[in-house]
């Protein structure tokens, strides 16, 4: 694995496992995973927001853990399993978290939504019944400038309860 310690960027060919498929790409190990995913693989659901890891728009899953792809050199994920927002819904079926975002209307412009859903997916995979405080601290690194936080919280609570629950009454 070529990581941060070797910032020299000699192109090499590597294999990335993205959304369940092996993708062979010519890569410079120091390029950001975000750039590779968006510009080379055309998976534009993962967004650029700040380039310094403080907005969460670029989050994707590496071996099930939410990772800020703008700060991750692509060399670090060679041989690991990467899942982007496009890879969450299998066979066109939304995940419970995606469905909960829909049911709660938890987006306005929608630009932060992929990163929010990725972060929430990692949270619930590791902690299926998070407390309110656990939700807030897990999501604190994700920014929504439209101010959708109350509905995003409601969507995560809803997904944690199980997708068959009725819409929250106070929404």
């Amino acid at each position: 694995m070529t990581g941060r310690e070797s910032p020299c960027s000699r192109p090499v060919t590597g294999t990335l496992r993205i959304n369940g498929r092996e993708r062979s790409i010519s890569l410079e190990p120091s390029r950001s995973l975000l750039e590779v995913v968006r510009d080379e693989l055309g998976l534009t659901g993962t967004k650029y927001g700040c380039g310094e890891g403080v907005c969460g728009a670029c989050k994707l899953l590496v071996d099930g853990v939410a990772v800020r792809s703008c700060l991750t050199p692509v060399g670090e994920v060679v041989g690991r399993s990467v899942t982007t927002i496009e890879g969450l819904a299998g066979d066109g079926r939304l995940t419970p978290i995606q469905q909960a975002f829909l049911d709660e209307g938890a987006f306005q412009c929608g630009y932060c939504t992929p990163g929010m859903i990725v972060a929430a997916t990692a949270l619930l995979a590791q902690n299926p019944q998070p407390s309110e405080e656990e939700i807030l601290s897990a999501m604190q690194g994700n920014l929504c400038r439209c101010g959708g936080y109350p509905r995003i919280r409601a969507a995560i609570r809803r997904a944690a309860r199980g997708s068959s629950a009725p819409p929250s009454g106070d929404r």
């Binding site: 659901g45 993962t46 967004k47 650029y48 496009e86 209307g105």
Partner: peptide, 21 residues
């Protein structure tokens, strides 16, 4: 009423200007 294209939003399928090529 809900947004009609919500399914595209939650699956990352919306193409913003910065996503177009």
């Amino acid at each position: 009423a809900s947004s009609r294209d919500g399914a595209k939003v939650v699956t990352g399928a919306v193409r913003y200007t910065s996503d177009l090529r």
